[in-house]
Design a protein around this nucleic acid. Structure first.
Length: 294
DNA sequence: TAAGTTCTCCGCCAAG
DNA sequence: ATCTTGGCGGAGAACT
């Protein structure tokens, strides 16, 4: 495809490494991808590259990161923005849409839906270019305050709460085993109540939800290995019951693990299929999995 | 902070 | 043999 200025991916990661899987998927689908690493100013790159779409990829959105997104929208309002976040909250999603983010994704990202959205945007942008670019007016747009949780997370520098750092690193090291919140709280030197409240306050999700997301995120990556069975992946990421794993995976990803594995293996084998055929596949799958929780 | 209640997670089981 | 779906109940987490 390789349309126009391509896709600009702006990584804004506080603690996690960016997940490059999405970039690989986009490149396989023929999109030209430009990346801005965490800590680099995206605006000069946006102005130089003039991407058809810019995608802000966060693990835990902080104040400067969200302010950057808003600034990008103000400076270049005609460029549609996509937002990906690991730490999701309702108010963050509302903020994103008020900031006129085109679409909002929560990790682990449903790549099929993501690529379908990308395809639609490229089509719309190409049509707009032919018909003459029309900039959306922003003058007089009311200020859209960043939600309180983001302010809290804004101070979440790795050093600002060593107790929670212990918890995060414990989860990273013990994802494959049973993670009991009370034990983690104990390791952090906090009572279960203190830990629970602090964690939710800081990350916007409960500890359980965080662990679950990490497990599913890891499972989506592991399922790309053709040698690994769904059962292998299930036990490797800390689930002890295949039925529960299947249900949970489908709830988060919108596909069963085997469907996801098949999709990843096919996309690897084909080295990037045409977006048109992908969109058709996506339609079938999203219809089938429309009850999935985003 | 502790206690009680409600909700959600998680694993077992069975059927397909 | 592997995987999905659904019901069920205990345990633990979240909330008041």
């Amino acid at each position: 495809m390789g349309a126009g200025g391509g896709v600009l991916v702006v990584a804004r990661h506080i603690r996690e490494q960016p997940n490059d899987e999405l970039v690989r998927c986009m490149e396989k689908d023929g999109y030209r991808v430009h990346q801005v690493a965490t800590g680099h100013d995206p605006l000069p790159v946006m102005e130089r590259v003039k991407p058809l779409v810019t995608c802000f990829q966060y693990d835990y959105p902080d104040l400067p990161g969200l302010a950057e997104l808003r600034l990008a929208k103000e400076r270049m309002p005609s460029i549609p923005l996509l937002m990906i976040t690991q730490a999701h909250s309702e108010s963050l999603a509302v903020w994103a849409f008020r900031a006129r983010v085109w679409d909002y994704f929560v990790e682990p990202v449903d790549t099929v839906r993501f690529l379908a959205v990308l395809k639609l945007l490229f089509r719309l942008r190409s049509a707009a270019k032919k018909g003459g670019a029309r900039q959306l007016p922003i003058a007089g747009m009311p200020t859209n305050p960043i939600p309180p949780e983001a302010r809290v997370r804004g101070s979440a520098e790795p050093r600002d709460n060593p107790a929670l750092e212990l918890a995060i690193s414990y989860v990273d090291r013990n994802l494959h085993t049973k993670v009991v919140q009370a034990a983690v709280a104990d390791i952090c030197g906090l009572s279960p109540f203190q830990f629970s409240r602090l964690f939710k306050h800081r990350f916007g999700v409960t500890f359980q939800e965080y662990v679950l997301r990490k497990r599913i995120s890891q499972a989506t990556r592991m399922l790309g290995d053709p040698g690994a069975t769904v059962t292998d992946v299930c036990y490797n990421v800390g689930f002890h019951d295949l039925s529960y794993f299947t249900r949970t995976f489908q709830r988060y990803v919108g596909r069963t693990p085997s469907q996801h594995r098949l999709m990843m293996i096919r996309s690897r084998r084909q080295g990037g299929s045409k977006p048109e055929s992908r969109a058709k596949q996506q339609q079938v799958r999203t219809d089938a999995g429309s009850k999935a929780v985003s």
